[in-house]
Every structure is written in structure tokens, then in C-alpha cells.
Write a protein that binds this DNA or RNA. Sequence first.
RNA 1: GGCGGCAUAGCCAAGUGGUAAGGCAGCGGUCUGCAAAACCGCUAUUCACCAGUUCGAAUCUGGUUGCCGCCUCCA
Length: 482
Amino acid sequence: MSISIYNTLTRKKELFQTIEPGKVLMYVCGPTVYDSCHIGHARSAVVFDVISRYLKTQAYDVVYVRNFTDIDDKIINRAAEIGMDPKELADKYIAEFYRDMDALQVERASFEPRVTEHIDDVIQLVEKLLAKKVAYVVDGDVFFAVETYDAYGKLSNRRLEDMDPGARVEVDPRKHNPYDFILWKSAKPGEPSWTSPWGKGRPGWHIECSAMSARYLGKTFDIHGGGRDLIFPHHENEIAQSEAGHDREFVRYWIHNGFVNIDKEKMSKSLGNFRLVKDVVQQYHSEVIRLFLLSKQYRKPIDFNQTSMETSRTALDRIYALLLRIDAIIAGKEIPAKAQEDMPFWKKFCHAMDDDFNTANGIAVIFNAVRHANRIMDENETGTISRNVLISLSVVKREILRMGAVLGIGGDVPEAYFHTRRESILTKETMDANVIEKLITDRELARQEKDWERADQIREQLASMNIVLKDHPDGTHWEIKS
RNA sequence: GGCGGCAUAGCCAAGUGGUAAGGCAGCGGUCUGCAAAACCGCUAUUCACCAGUUCGAAUCUGGUUGCCGCCUCCA
């Protein structure tokens, strides 16, 4: 078992070695709760969910912290816009975040702290930074002095003198260096605030993660994750604060996921092309979304569009059709428990995942297993199914479910998976299942009388309604082609 | 201006030195009354282009072209 991880800090894959054997300390930046989650949040959540799940299967004790930023300028501004209390706004979107994550089957982290519950930790860290003279106070605001931290820029691979300050944002003239960032922000009248040695205020933009990660994971921990966009300035600043404050290495492995584009364009306010999780889960089964998000290496950009989603759905159908087929054969049969140690597909899957969590390769292994199982069943369609075949099928099914469980796919009951979609399309298309069943019964009668012409005519009629029939020995099944 | 990424079949996408995974779509075959599904076979002598290193490169080096991201809103 040797996992390698691409470390943003060193810009190469490294062998993963935890600080404490068998234990992984992981922190991932969670949302600032001022708006609904979009598909980009979903990618980050799903990617780190899968990383956490996989590490657990490799016998690691995973301590996973994902925070909520529940106080910040964006929250205050949004709350003011719609005349809501900032705390209420944050609570509302935290609740929505949980609904979205549950819908996507993203597991809960070990700890999900909120900044407003850790103000004391923030103040203590700021005091420490002031004592070390790497921060300064101006009019109740506290800034971190980037020039005091030699390694500033090491994560984002840039030097202070190469950057172009003020290109996009006006520089606060009180700063010693344009890249100095705020640790503690003084409150304007009416803003939420906490008492501090520098007056009433709130935590700055980056300090919370330094304070909370230290609280839950210690001063040095194994993995810190988030979206690519957080590399600079957020994570760069976290490193500066934490390493200056604690005098030791902050994080061993930095993992950043790529963006989700929409029809080849970046999601942006100006394009108004955000895809919200709550909308997407209405349209697609959660596992279709997960399969799509995991079909590309997590560091690369992925394009969300109708074609790619439908392709993912067809692919997932293939897995569920296989599970359904296996279940029909092994249902109610005693399967000997022996010979279940050797799991070649699972091993290949782990090999793929060991290489920087290569889920695209892992998915390929699942489909290899699907083909393998279908082949076994094709070769044993006639006659009595032997014990060995039953064992093989049950083993490969277990492998598929085990691999799927890491990715969060294949966990639905196959019948329910198809049934749910059928129902939702029937509702959408305002079709009546009874009408369809009646036509199928008519066709069955025609077939029994070998009236192929009439049977085919009925099938054509159903086909024009996008109903596909499948004749099985135990009766005719139908599906909606979508 | 600085930093970085990407270019693989009709589409999506793995593959970082040893002779091109997987999914979707398509074509042929088996099966089927006919279909559907499944399986088998076919669909990139080739990985943007040029040069170099090497016994050997999609994979390494240099260059060219094109696309994209970041440089204090952002997953």
C-alpha cells in the first residue's frame, strides 16, 4: 500500500506518508455561507469525499475537518441587501449546504466547525502574530506583514516583486505592503462584532482556517485541500500565518481540485451560468453527478454540459443493469463464502486510486468488472448454473459494490434506480404507466398467437412514445429512452 | 508583465520511457420470431506541429502554434 499524491507545494507527485502512522489529518476549506452551492462546490466536496472514503478503505483513521465560514464581508453585504440578519443568512445556507451534500451523498466530515464558534482561537493566534512582530495594528484593524515571512509565495510559486498589485483592487494605503492582508477587521456600526484587544471586530478573511485547523488537527497536519482558486491568496496566507505563528511546518500535502466549466465557459456572475446543486440534483440522479465529476482527473478542469451528463447516465445505467442481472441469478441462492479473498478488480482499482486518486482509471476498472460479469452470465445462460459460477458472480458483485462505495456509486437498489427514473420521466412526460402496461399485455397476447405483425406494430407504437421493450423469459420489461 | 496548466479516435477521457485503458456514439457478427440488452470483432500504425536525447517517446529536452487558469469575489 503506497499512495502518491500530487502536492501543489512541490508541484509533483510524492509518496504519501502520514505524520502519525495509520492516521490522516485532513482539512478542507468549506463554503462561505452567503449563497447556494453550485456544481463547482459539488466537485470539491465529492473529490474530497472520495479521498476520505478511499483512505478509510486503506485502513487509515481519517480525521476530516471541513469548516463553514459563517461571518465575512460577503455574508454581511448579502444580508444587508435582502434585509436579513447575517446569522440567519448563514444558518439558512448552512442548512441548504447540508441538504445539497446529503442529496449528493457526500459524507459528513469528522468536524464541521464554524468561525463564529472559534473567535477566541482567532484572537489568540492574532495576538501571537502581533507578539512576534509579523503583524501590525492600524485603527483597530490588524494586518499580517508579508515581508516578514520569507517563504511568502511558496505555494502559489510567485514572488512579491513579480505580482501586479492594484491591478484589480484598490490597495489600502494603510498597508505596509500591498499584499499585507487583514487578520482582524474592525466593525462598522451595526455590523456583527466580537470584543478583541483591538476593539470590536471580526476575523479577517484567512485566519479562521489557521485557527480552526490548529484547534482540531494540531499545528502540523497531513492534507489541506480546496479548489484551485484558493491557492492564492487564501492558502498562501494561511501558510504565512500558521508557520509564522507556530514556528513549524503547517501542511504536508496540499491538494487542489480543478474548476467546473459550463459549456466550455467559466461559471461567473457576469455570464449568469451558475448551475446550482439543488437544481442539478432535480435533473440527474446523484450518482450520475458523482460519476460525471469523477470521470476526469480531479486536478483538471471538467466541462459540465448536457451531453456529458447524459453520457454519464447511460454509463451508470450499464452498471445498474449488470447488478440487476446478477441479482436475478443469485437471488435466494446459498452462495458459499469461500474463495472471496482474491479480488482482482478491487486490487486494480486500489492501484488506480493509489496514483493520486485516479478515479477515471478506477471507473475503467469497474467497467472491466461489469464486462467480466456479463460475459460469465452470457456463457452460462442455458442449463443449471454451477456453484463456481454463482461464487464468481457473487464475488464480482461484491467487488463492484466495494469499488462503487469508494466513489459513491452503485449504492442504490437496482430496481429502485430504474424505477425512480421511470417515474420521474412518466410524470414529466405526463404518461400513464397503466396505458403502457396495457399495450404490453396486448402485445404479449399477440405474441402468444404468433401474430408477429401486430406484436411489432404495438412495439413500434411504444417506441414512438420512447418506450423500449426487453423480452425476457420471465416477461417483458420496459424502459423509457431518454 | 509574472506564474502555471492543457492539446490523445466522431465526442468525453486514462496513460509521464517499452510499443495506445474505459465510457458514449457508429459499423459488422452471435443471440432473438423481429427487437432491446449482453457478448465478440472492427473503428487512433498513432497521441497539435518541428527538431533533439534514447535501442526505444504520447510520455524526456528545446522550439513553434492554439486554448485555458491565476496574480487579494470565487470550489
